[in-house]
């Protein structure tokens, strides 16, 4: 039938294509938004350092902020309290091992990202970028992953190589049971 009536086929194709276009049409109600408008929410930091803001902080600066804002939960020396240990810890061996920053975390940028989005627990998003850099520097320094005078900023932080960087097997999209 189609081969005997090319005009009919063309008409049918036109109908199918226009129907598909109508079906695929979305309301397009999203409003354009500028980088400036979303700047306060644009807080993801990636392992290559993209997303890190301007600013800088030293372990000494971080020590003061830590005592004031973090030590009540994480202990005076960062070795744990009601909340997790931030300093020290062994390499992991099995599922019961403690997942410490020095012993488990693969990327230093995660520290900045997580402090900035989630800490302090009672007042997240209250720290300045400078304070987040300083706290990041303090914790890395206490874990002897950087020197006591090393400032952390958008250039230096992504270069800090975490000890367990190669300790992972990427499961996705592996389907092995």
């Amino acid at each position: 039938m189609f081969t005997r009536n090319p005009a009919g086929l063309a008409a049918l194709l036109t109908f199918v294509l226009s129907a598909a276009m109508v079906f695929a049409q979305a309301p397009n109600l999203g409003k354009p938004v500028s980088p400036a408008e979303i700047a306060a929410w644009d807080i993801n930091v990636l392992p290559d350092g993209s997303g890190l803001p301007p600013g800088s902080g030293t372990p000494a600066d971080g020590a003061r902020i830590y005592t004031a804002k973090c030590s009540a939960c994480h202990g005076p020396e960062g070795k744990g309290g009601p909340s997790a240990r931030l300093v020290g810890g062994e390499p992991v061996k099995n599922m019961s091992s403690e997942k410490t920053i020095a012993g488990f975390w693969p990327y230093s940028t995660t520290l900045f990202d997580y402090i900035r989005r989630a800490m302090p627990w009672q007042q997240p998003r209250s720290l300045t970028n400078e304070e987040v850099y300083a706290l990041t520097a303090y914790i890395l320094s206490q874990n002897q992953l950087i020197g006591e005078r090393d400032a952390m900023n958008a250039q230096t932080l992504p270069k800090v190589r975490m000890p367990n960087r190669d300790g992972f097997i990427v499961r996705f999209p592996d389907r092995t049971p």
Partner: peptide
Amino acid sequence: GMTFYESRTYAAILPGGKAYQF
């Protein structure tokens, strides 16, 4: 992003110390 929950919390440590990521 290697966020806190994917790079730490839900990474599953296997016997020997390697961990599944993702």
